[in-house]
Computed example of a mutant assay.
Amino acid sequence: MSMLVGDPQCWACRHYRSWVESPAHLRTSTCAAFPEGIPQTIFFGGADHREPYLGDNGVRWESNGKPYPAE
């Protein structure tokens, strides 16, 4: 059994907030770029958020001390 839990790019970003840290009514992971919930395309690694992404409010990936995941 496999379980999708998100992408390391989010875990390594200083803007990331897990669903536990996000507002309770959302029940999803959020960040400064996506305060209403991180799009699945980014969260599951389908888009590199070092690049602009529609609706990201000009906020991009920034390291929280961890490197960007290997390609």
Rank of each mutant, 00 (worst) to 15 (best):
P8I: 04
V59P: 02
T41C: 00
D7M: 03
A24Q: 11
A32M: 13
D56V: 09
D48L: 06
W11G: 01
P35E: 13
G6I: 05
A12R: 05
A32Y: 09
Q9F: 03
H25F: 09
S29E: 14
H49L: 07
T30Q: 11
I38H: 01
D48S: 06
Y16E: 03
R60D: 00
S18W: 05
Y53P: 01
P69V: 06
R14Y: 00
L4W: 13
G6D: 04
G58H: 14
R27G: 03
E36Y: 07
G55M: 07
S2G: 14
E71K: 12
D56G: 02
G55Y: 03
R50C: 12
L54I: 08
F43L: 09
V5A: 13
D7S: 15
R60P: 02
Q40Y: 00
N57P: 01
D7Q: 05
P35F: 12
E71A: 12
E62P: 01
S18A: 12
Y68L: 06
V20E: 15
I42S: 01
E51L: 09
P8M: 04
H15C: 00
N57W: 04
G46V: 00
W19R: 14
L26D: 10
F44V: 03
D56Q: 09
A24H: 08
R50K: 08
G45A: 06
W61I: 03
R50N: 10
P69Q: 04
K66V: 02
E21A: 15
A33K: 06
G58A: 09
S18T: 15
E21G: 07
F43H: 11
V20R: 15
E51Q: 12
C10Y: 03
A33T: 09
R17Y: 08
E62G: 01
L26A: 11
R17A: 09
C10Q: 04
W11N: 05
Y53C: 06
V59N: 07
L4R: 15
F34H: 07
R50A: 12
V5L: 14
I42L: 13
M3L: 15
W19D: 10
F44H: 11
Y16W: 13
T30M: 14
P23Y: 09
E62Q: 14
F43Q: 08
P52H: 07
F43E: 05
R27M: 10
Q40L: 08
V5S: 13
S29K: 11
C13Y: 01
S18H: 05
C13S: 02
A24N: 03
S29W: 10
A12I: 00
Q9W: 03
K66G: 04
E21L: 15
Y16I: 03
D7T: 10
R50T: 15
Y68M: 07
H15T: 01
D48K: 04
P35K: 13
M1I: 13
A12P: 00
D7P: 02
P23D: 05
F44G: 01
G58N: 11
T41I: 12
R17W: 03
P35Q: 12
P69G: 03
A32N: 14
A70N: 07
L26Q: 08
G46M: 07
W11S: 10
Y16N: 01
V20L: 14
V5N: 10
T41H: 00
A33F: 07
H15L: 00
D56S: 11
R27L: 10
P67F: 08
W19E: 14
F34E: 05
Q9L: 04
